[in-house]
Design a protein around this nucleic acid. Sequence first.
DNA 1: GCCAACGTTGGC
DNA 2: GCCAACGTTGGC
Length: 137
Amino acid sequence: MQYWLIKSDPETYSFERMKKEKTTFWEGVRNYAARNNLKAMKKGDLCFFYESMNGEPSIVGTVKITKEHYQDPTTDETAWVCVDVTYQSTLKPTVTLKEIKANPKLTQMALVRLSRLSVQPVTEEEWEEVLQMSSKK
DNA sequence: GCCAACGTTGGC
DNA sequence: GCCAACGTTGGC
């Protein structure tokens, strides 16, 4: 069981839409490092859903991997894969990037260090810490 | 909208 | 296979 974080520009695919559709295939990854992480995902793994760009960049909820990687149907290139994810929960309130950066326990998070990686691993400690931050607010 | 960071491409 | 140039991402 592992934890991950996936990023989305809400103009492309918002968490609102994720909630409405319940399940979606996470396609469009065109970066090798991110692709390798997609391939490492296992059914049942949990993911933070992070919204970038618009407004306050934040972790807004969690989703679950419901299907392991397969050929990305949006391209013929066999190099690229996608996974299926299903809505799990909404973080109330959300945890912003600002707060994550301000938390000394989270300075090692890939989100802070590798800000451009769109699919990244999260440690169990980081996972728990972010959930705590949300519940304590 | 700017610009820093970083991944990718392509010439050698 | 190196590395400069270029393109893209994403925070601000």
